[in-house]
């Protein structure tokens, strides 16, 4: 039990844990992408930039306003969500009736603007964010040491995914969202203000990305490039899983994190491209994606 294919068990578990953490972030982001796509028919290229913004919101709140880690888990998503409202109302909504490609290009431009702005203001180098004291320790599981913060990241992001899933699949508000995805004009004819709903959906989903960014701040360093590196991998996740279902997005995100972790153990040099290789395999074997229904 101590070695598997010549790899110490503890190392394997450690990498799987890291993979699970990455997977949690993939899940949080691809979940938001899937909801935005379902409701607004937009591929939100700026999703990575909003994740980065969440990290910086937490960092700035901590450094200049003295707002600690826990409140910033609320403050950062709210701030990012507000910017999302502005982007949706000012720019995105004017493109809904056009080819999807324009909204993709628009959000790409927004991503460049945000990344460029933060590079200009803060420089390219990563900035550390201190671990919250309550989670600085760890748990000895016997076979490995589990840092408390990493456990928290997994629990928190999966919790948020679960709550989001529940809200959409099981509540009245979620029924409005699902109905508006199918037939927005009829939902509007029932007396629901669909444009406002779209704005709030976008704000909520980029808020989720902001939450992920704040969650990531103590784990990785906060840097302007942190979002763009992630978003491309998340795009591959989305291609693999399809954007038809929320559960699909979460499951695909987590499993790809795990696959990445496993690659790191057995073929370390290929770990950076593991997700892309899976994408190629899926394209060859099941072109419409694992949970796919192409639009």
């Amino acid at each position: 039990m101590t070695e598997i294919f010549g790899v110490p068990f503890a190392v394997l578990l450690g990498q799987l844990l890291l993979g699970l953490i990455n997977g949690s972030f993939y899940a949080l982001l691809s979940l938001g992408l899937a909801i935005i796509f379902g409701m607004l028919n937009v591929i939100n290229f700026a999703h990575g930039a909003f994740y980065m913004l969440g990290g910086f919101a937490a960092l700035v709140a901590f450094n200049t306003l003295g707002i600690g880690y826990w409140p910033s888990l609320i403050v950062a998503p709210l701030a990012v969500g507000l910017i999302g409202v502005v982007v949706e109302k000012l720019l995105l909504r004017h493109l809904y009736k056009m080819d999807h490609l324009y909204s993709l290009l628009l959000t790409f431009g927004v991503a460049l603007m945000l990344e460029g702005l933060f590079r200009h203001l803060f420089g390219s180098a990563g900035k550390p964010y201190p671990l919250p004291e309550a989670l600085s320790g760890g748990i000895n599981l016997g076979f490995m040491f589990l840092p408390a913060y990493r456990a928290w990241v997994i629990v928190a992001s999966l919790g948020v995914c679960l709550v989001t899933w529940y809200a959409i699949e099981r509540t009245r508000l979620g029924a409005y969202l699902r109905a508006a995805t199918e037939n927005p004009s009829l939902v509007q004819a029932f007396g629901i203000n669909v444009p406002v709903m779209l704005t709030l959906t976008y704000a909520f989903c980029v808020g989720l990305a902001g939450f992920a960014g704040a969650l990531a701040a103590p784990l990785y360093q906060v840097s302007p490039g942190m979002g763009s590196n992630l978003i491309i991998i998340v795009f591959a996740v989305v291609v693999i899983g399809g954007m038809g279902s929320i559960i699909g997005a979460v499951v695909t995100g987590l499993s790809l994190g795990l696959i990445e972790g496993l690659t790191k153990v057995f073929v370390p040099s290929a770990s950076a491209i593991a997700v892309f290789l899976v994408m190629v395999a899926v394209l060859l074997l099941r072109p419409s994606g694992l949970f796919g229904r192409e639009r």
Binding site: I233, A236, V239, I273, F276, L277, L283, E294, R295
Partner: peptide, 26 residues
């Protein structure tokens, strides 16, 4: 590979494939 998907998926596939080349170049 990419023409197996349409529209925005095509865009995402090409982006991901190119990123693979980037990682290889690194």
């Amino acid at each position: 590979l990419a023409i197996r998907r349409h529209g925005i998926y095509f865009a995402m596939v090409t982006l991901a494939l190119a990123q693979m080349v980037y990682f290889l170049a690194v």
